[in-house]
Design a protein around this nucleic acid. Structure first.
Lengths: 232, 232
DNA sequence: CGAACGTTTGAGATGACTCAAGCGTTGTGG
DNA sequence: CCACAACGCTTGAGTCATCTCAAACGTTCG
C-alpha cells in the first residue's frame, strides 16, 4: 500500500529499494507539529496512515494550509534537495510515518536517473496541486472552494483505495476546512449547510458523502486533470 | 545572464551544456498564449527577456495567475518529466524565449545526477513560490496581497540584476495585479492608492518604487526565505 | 459532573465587488 | 493633422459576501 501516488508507476525493484531504505516508522498524535518552518531536514517520509498537512502561519498565528497528504504518499521528497523548509508540517489526525534518510535516498537515486525522474515527477504533482489550490482560493467563492476541495479529496482518496467514489473518511474539522479554503470557521459551517441543502454533498463527521458528483464538480469548477490520475 | 535562478549555482560547464542545448530563440508579443492548458509539451524554455505567466482559467474565463517569470529563469523544466500541462503559459510583456527540447535535456541530465538535482531544486523553488502565493491569497487582505507581491518582485528583480532594491521596472497592468492577487481590477486601483497614501510604495507605470521596504514587508507579512536567495 | 472541543445559529459590521461613468494617453486612419 | 477608437487608470454609489462577535448546544472524556 506504500507509494501509490497517482501518476507514478514504480517497478517492484524500485519500490523494494525505497521501502528498504526505511529506517524507522514513527507514530504521531493528532495536531502535532512534525517539522517547524525553517528547520533543516535530513529525512524524507512516506505517510502510512493518517492525514498530514503543510502550512504557513502569519505573524498573528492565523494559518493557511498549503497542502494535505493522504496515506501512500511520499511526503517530503521535495525536502531532499531542499534541506530547509519554507513551511511547517504537522498532523491533522493520528498518523504513522515511515522515515527515509536523505543519505540513503541519494545512494539509491544517483545511479538511477529513471527513478529520480519518477520521484521528481511526483513532486511536480504536488506543485500542480498547489496551483489548483491557488485557483481555488483566488477565484472561487466560499461554496465553490469547499466543493472544489471535496472533489479533490474524493479523487485522491479513491486513488489511495480509501473511497468507493460516493462516501469516504475525511476526519477534518470545520476549522481545518477554513484554513484550507481561506475562510473562517463560522462561514465554513454555513457553506456546508448550503452544500447539503443543494443536494451536492453531506458532511457527517468524520465522513463526507458526495450526492451529486457532477453538480459538485461544476459548482467547484473542478477539473481533475491536475491530479494526473492516469499518469503523466 | 541566462540561468541565474537564485539558489541554484551552476558550474561553467553545466551552464555551457544547457545553453548549448538551445535550438532556437523565439520572440513573442505581449499578451500572447505560449502553451494552452492541457497541451503536450516537448520543450523547456529559458526566459531571456520579458515577463511570462502561468494561469488557470475558470469556466467563465476568469483568470487566476499562479506564477510569473522574470528574465534568467528556466521556465518549463517542470514540464520535462510532466509532458502535459495543467495550466496555460503566456506573455505579459513582449518576451524572448530560448527553446531547449526535452530530448536534449534528457541526454544531458541522465549521466549527471548532480545537475539533475540542481534543476529539480529549481522546480522546488517554484513550488515554494506557489505556497507563498497561497498564503497571500488565502490569508491576507487586499492591501496585504499587493504589498506581498511587490515585496516578492522586488527581491526577484534584484536577484535578476534588474533592481537596485528601491525602484524597478514592473510592466504589469492593474488587471494583471488583480489576476495575481485574486481581486478585481477596480479594487486593485484603490489598494494601490492606499499603499501610496500610506507611504509604502508608489506605482508609476511601468515602474514601482518602494518607499519603505520594512513597512511594506510588515503590511504584506512577507518573509523572503521561500525565495532561497542565499541558496538551499 | 464538568471541562474541552467542535458545531450551529443570530445580528451587525465591513471589505470587496458590481455597475457606471469620466479621464488621459497612445495609436491609427481619414 | 485631426478625430476617434482602444486601452488603462480613476472615482463614485450601492450591493453583497464574508467576517466578527456572541451565545448556545451536543459529544466525548476524564
Amino acid at each position: 500500500m506504500l507509494l501509490n501516488r497517482r501518476g507514478v508507476e514504480l517497478t517492484v525493484e524500485e519500490r523494494g529499494l525505497l521501502e528498504g531504505a526505511i529506517t524507522e516508522v514513527r507514530e504521531f498524535e493528532p495536531r502535532k507539529t512534525i517539522v517547524e518552518a525553517g528547520e533543516r531536514v535530513s529525512i524524507s517520509t512516506i505517510l502510512i496512515d493518517g492525514i498530514l498537512c503543510r502550512y504557513i502561519d502569519d505573524r498573528k498565528g492565523l494559518r493557511q494550509l498549503v497542502s494535505v497528504h493522504v496515506p501512500g504518499e511520499f511526503v517530503d521528497i521535495h525536502a531532499y534537495p531542499m534541506r530547509h523548509l519554507d513551511h511547517g508540517v504537522g498532523t491533522l489526525t493520528a498518523a504513522s510515518v515511515a522515515i527515509v534518510p536523505h543519505e540513503a535516498l541519494k545512494q539509491i537515486l544517483d545511479p538511477r536517473p529513471e527513478l529520480a525522474r519518477k520521484l521528481w515527477f511526483s513532486t511536480l504533482i504536488g506543485a500542480a496541486m498547489h496551483r489548483a489550490w491557488l485557483f481555488r482560493v483566488g477565484r472561487l467563492d466560499a461554496v465553490g472552494r469547499v466543493a472544489h476541495f471535496v472533489c479533490e479529496m474524493g479523487v485522491r482518496m479513491a486513488g489511495a483505495g480509501l473511497s468507493d467514489g460516493k462516501a469516504f473518511h475525511l476526519p477534518l474539522t470545520q476549522s481545518d476546512l477554513a484554513e484550507i479554503c481561506g475562510l473562517t470557521t463560522v462561514h465554513v459551517n454555513r457553506v456546508i449547510r448550503q452544500l447539503r441543502e443543494a443536494g451536492l454533498c453531506i458532511f457527517r463527521p468524520p465522513f463526507v458523502e458526495i450526492l451529486d458528483a457532477a453538480a459538485l464538480a461544476r459548482r467547484g469548477d473542478f477539473d481533475p486533470s491536475y491530479l494526473y490520475v492516469d499518469g503523466p
